[in-house]
Amino acid sequence: MLTHGIQNWIVALCVILATATLLRRYLKKSSAQNTECGNCGGCSGKIGKR
């Protein structure tokens, strides 16, 4: 059984990771000069190289 302390740590880690992911994603997007589609996921024009 997970103690309250461990539960708190797991949740805190997830929140920090989620925040960092969002920040990284939007900082990266704002600095990108030549992205193919803005990475919005709304188009199927993505290129995958073999």
Binding site: C14, V15, A18, T19, T21, L22, R25, G41, G42, S44
Partner: peptide
């Protein structure tokens, strides 16, 4: 292939940006 890609883009979006935003919003 187009349909699979569309579905996958949507699922990936749920698993990335929507998941991250949901966690931050829950907090």
């Amino acid at each position: 292939l187009g349909l699979k890609e569309r579905a996958w883009i949507f699922i990936r979006r749920v698993g990335t940006v929507i998941l991250a935003l949901s966690i931050v919003l829950w907090f």
